[in-house]
Design a protein around this nucleic acid. Structure first.
Lengths: 145, 145
DNA sequence: TCGATTTACTTAATATATGAATTATTCATA
DNA sequence: TATGAATAATTCATATATTAAGTAAATCGA
């Protein structure tokens, strides 16, 4: 008889609720929401991305992304640039201000991450990811390996 | 150098995104949102709860809960009853219709849960929970001087 | 060349999340 | 027994999620 609180969705939700405040304090100190940072963070590794790419990387649904990008643009942290080759694409590019903010925040974000990592051994972290993958793998891919 | 996609929030979010659709199909078939089911599910084990208790069990913040309860009440699945002893409390009670819906859905919800559990061994599940607890333990309780 | 399709994106409507503040009630205590 | 602190439920403003439907520019095929 699986208790409600021990169901997979509740366990994951509760963990997220416990993990996010550490990050959120930093985001708020820099006047960003969780999702706004997610977008900036995605642009850290690539210089420019289309909305669809950002959506895929950040897991934010495209309709949600519209408003998030609007607000980032209003804060002058990103710019939109329609591609000349394929004019269906819109490139999202961080501004100078946006890039400066990212460079300011990244070390602290990594610091928070490191704090969490110090709670477990490397093999625990590996094992954790392995089991979570088994648990949450999309059903289609499950019967392969 | 922790990759964005391997950060704890992203791992948990992605897993939730992969787990929820199985449940969501069932919820939608019964015209419920995730959160609305969470409230009903909490009422499965106790006959009546106050808003604050439901908030604590379901992890839904009180301001969100107000609207969720409003919509459940409008669908005639729950009722609100202000306590006579302490008139600050409001008891949330499932209606006949609400209870019937819960009894209809519970076996299927448990079936979905069992499907996920079959993906891992019992010791893997135990280990997973142990590590996740270490990872997401509230920071306040750890650094308490 | 024209219509069907695809891709990327936008809108609209409803539901939640978040943080701050409010209201009504109860509690604690001087 | 006043009076301030605490509590429960709620409201408010803003931001985001979710789904469905719609738009516009490119691509493809007959």
């Amino acid at each position: 008889m699986p208790k409600f609180l021990d169901s997979l969705p509740m366990i994951l939700s509760r963990s997220l609720d416990r993990v996010m405040p550490s990050y959120r304090r930093l985001f708020q100190a820099n006047d960003l929401t969780d999702q706004q940072w997610r977008v900036l963070r995605a642009l850290w590794e690539k210089q420019h991305l289309t909305s669809a790419q950002i959506s895929q990387i950040t897991l934010l649904p495209p309709p949600s992304l519209v408003g998030i990008l609007d607000r980032l643009e209003k804060k002058n942290l990103i710019g939109r640039l329609r591609s000349t080759e394929d004019r269906r694409h819109v490139h999202i590019i961080p501004t100078q201000k946006g890039r400066a903010l990212m460079e300011h925040m990244m070390p602290m974000v990594e610091g928070i991450h490191d704090d969490f990592m110090q709670r477990v051994t490397e093999s625990e972290w590996t094992e954790f990811n392995r089991i979570l993958d088994k648990l949450s793998d999309p059903a289609e891919k499950r019967n392969l390996a």
